[in-house]
Each structure stands twice: as C-alpha cells, then as structure tokens.
C-alpha cells in the first residue's frame, strides 16, 4: 500500500506531463495557424523557437544577444538578493531575540513594509539611473522583507524549553542567541530565502519593464515596441526558466547547508 494520492501504472504516469505539455503546444500552434487568434497578437511556439535560436547569436533587433539579457537580469537579481540576505537575515535574527533591536528597527520596518517595492522604481531611477544599481536597490527592497520576517519569526518560535534549559546552565543571552535561537530559526530562514527569491525576481522584471537597456524585462518591452509577439513570449519563457533555475540552485545550497538538521 502506498501513501501516494492514487495508484496507477508508473510508466503511464511518467509520460503524462510530457503529453499535457505537447497538447498545450499543439493547441497553441493550431489556434494561431488556423487564424482563430491573429498572428499579430500571439506568436506560435514554432516562431518563438525560431527566434530563440536566432537570438542565441544575433544582437538585433533589440541590441543584445539572448545570453546577455539573461546574465544582465541574473546579475541584477543576485546583487540585490544577496544584499537583502546579508542585511535582512542578521537584522531579523537580532530583532527576534534582542528587544532593543526590535524596538529600534521594527517601527521603521513596519512603515516601509506595506509599500510595494515596485513603487520605489521612480525614485530609484532618480537616484541611480537605469543601470544595475537602481535595479539592485528595487530587488533589495523586495527581498529584504521576507528575509527579516522569516528570521524574526524563526527566532521567536524557538521552543522556550531550550531557552530555559540553557539559562539554568548559566548560558549568557548572546550564547543562547548563537547556539539555540539561530539553529532553531534556520528552517524558517531558508523558507524565507525561497519567498525572497520569488519576490526579487518579480520585482526585477517589473523594474526592467519600466527602465532598462538590457535584461529579460527589457526584451519583453522591446517586443511590444517592435510589435513582435514572438519576442514577448520568448522573454516571458526565459523569465520563467531562469527563475526556476535559480530556485533549484538555492534549494541545492539549502539541502547541503542543513544536511545535518533532519527534522
């Protein structure tokens, strides 16, 4: 007996995802080919694939080859994301344990938190222009929120028995923070990394749609300006694929770091 939702032939189950994907692509191709949806509004999968291959080594018509767009976006995303982790996680952890840190930071944090990161874009353009710095700032602003919240909650959720136990042995506040609260918060912190990644990536594409001269969001914007639906769809697909790839890498890192912490 298995605890999986339902039993079935495992070979059939393996084929099913490909089958559904193929069906979607076929239907998509057909509705454009038969003229049900005009080709000016939607590109066919075949056209997107053709453009994909073309863009691998052609900079025109948008000014850069595909890999440059991907790397630009990834570079901006990682810069902002890593800065968000480096500042957000320690900040959240400290706020969770030391009341002084919470008292100082929380009001500012709560004031800024409800502002959608995208709302910072105009200011970011004023301050930093349309280069990497401005976008890294947007990513940072959107990534830091889940980092702080998850680290904070992770520390707060530390089982009070561990803290009492440590205190009776005479552990100092700092020792308890380091040896009890941080390891106890780690699973929550890693949960926050994934949430922060999703938030960062979304904000990045939004920022590039408005202000950029390269990047996947820029590719989508150019597709609209040049009336090239195939370029829009290509940009969208690349955003999705790259996001998935980064997610998988983070997941790997997490697995390695918390290898010992089986729960």
């Amino acid at each position: 007996m298995s605890d999986k939702p339902s039993s079935g032939n495992s070979k059939v189950l393996k084929i099913l995802p490909y089958l559904s994907l193929l069906t979607v692509l076929a239907v998509w191709e057909l509705i454009v080919d038969t003229g049900l949806v005009p080709n000016t509004l939607l590109a066919t999968p075949a056209q997107v694939l053709k453009l994909f291959i073309y863009k691998l080594n052609h900079a025109d018509p948008d000014g850069a080859v595909l890999i440059v767009h991907v790397l630009t976006s990834v570079g901006e995303a990682l810069t902002g994301y890593i800065l968000a982790l480096l500042i957000g996680i320690p900040l959240g952890l400290l706020m969770g344990w030391f009341v002084v840190a919470e008292g100082l930071v929380r009001p500012i944090f709560e004031m800024i938190r409800p502002i959608p990161p995208v709302a910072w874009i105009p200011l970011a353009i004023f301050w930093f222009g349309i280069g990497l710095t401005g976008k890294a700032f947007i990513i940072w602003a959107s990534g830091i929120v889940p980092c702080v919240i998850n680290s904070f909650v992770g520390v707060r959720m530390t089982n009070p028995v561990y803290i009492r136990m440590a205190r009776t042995y005479g552990a100092s506040d700092w020792e308890i923070f380091r040896k009890i609260c941080i390891p106890s918060a780690l699973p929550m912190v890693f949960g926050g990394l994934q949430v922060a990644l999703a938030a960062s990536w979304t904000a990045l594409v939004a920022a590039e749609l408005i202000a950029a001269d390269a990047g996947l969001g820029f590719l989508i914007t150019m597709g609209r300006r040049l009336l090239m639906p195939d370029m829009i769809v290509l940009g969208m697909i690349m955003v999705g694929l790259t996001g998935v790839a980064i997610g998988i890498i983070i997941d790997r890192v997490e697995k390695r770091l918390v290898a010992g912490m089986r729960r």
Partner: peptide, 26 residues
C-alpha cells in the same frame, strides 16, 4: 545547576552526543 524538564528538551539540530555535551559546553 541542572534542570530536567517534564517536556522533551533535546535540540533537534544536535545529535544525541552533542545534546548531552551542551551543558558542558556552556
């Protein structure tokens, strides 16, 4: 001073050995 609590107090991120060593580490 040592305290054995009624509720389980083993830290899940430490092995049995590391848990036993905790008090001595402090």
């Amino acid at each position: 001073i040592s305290f054995v609590f009624q509720e389980p107090s083993c830290m899940p991120w430490r092995t049995v050995k590391e848990n036993i060593a905790y008090g001595m580490e402090v």
